[in-house]
């Protein structure tokens, strides 16, 4: 348990997170997208799995992340893709945890 918790990286203050998609850039990591819906926090790569577009320029709609360019939709939590361009992969969601001093996530893979 202790080792797992230590592997988590602090992402940002909880107060920074709203229902929009927040872009977070951390040293040594690719940019992240962060959002909160119905009290649940979500952390995922900011780059759309289809190409190179920034998902933080998109929006959340009906429980899905919507890419601003080709409008692929990714289910919050499991990353399943809807209406994506041909060959568009799922979106990865990182395990994350709200703590008193901020949002933490395990940035695997």
């Amino acid at each position: 348990m202790m080792a797992d918790a230590l592997d988590m990286v602090r992402i940002c203050d909880l107060s920074e997170i709203g229902e929009e998609i927040l872009k977070v850039s951390l040293e040594g990591h690719k940019p992240l997208g962060v959002t909160c819906l119905d009290g649940i926090y979500y952390v995922f790569p900011d780059t759309c799995p289809h190409a190179n577009e920034s998902l933080s320029k998109g929006w959340i709609e009906d429980g899905r992340v919507v890419c601003p360019v080709h409008f692929a939709e990714f289910e919050l939590g499991n990353g399943a893709v809807h209406n994506g361009p041909s060959g568009c992969a799922r979106l990865t969601f990182y395990e994350c945890e709200a703590r008193i001093d901020g949002l933490y996530a395990r940035l695997t893979s």
């Binding site: 759309c48 190179n52 577009e53």
Partner: peptide
């Protein structure tokens, strides 16, 4: 223009 195929033009 929001974007293209996203791979070449970037």
């Amino acid at each position: 223009l929001r974007g293209t195929d996203g791979k070449v033009y970037d």
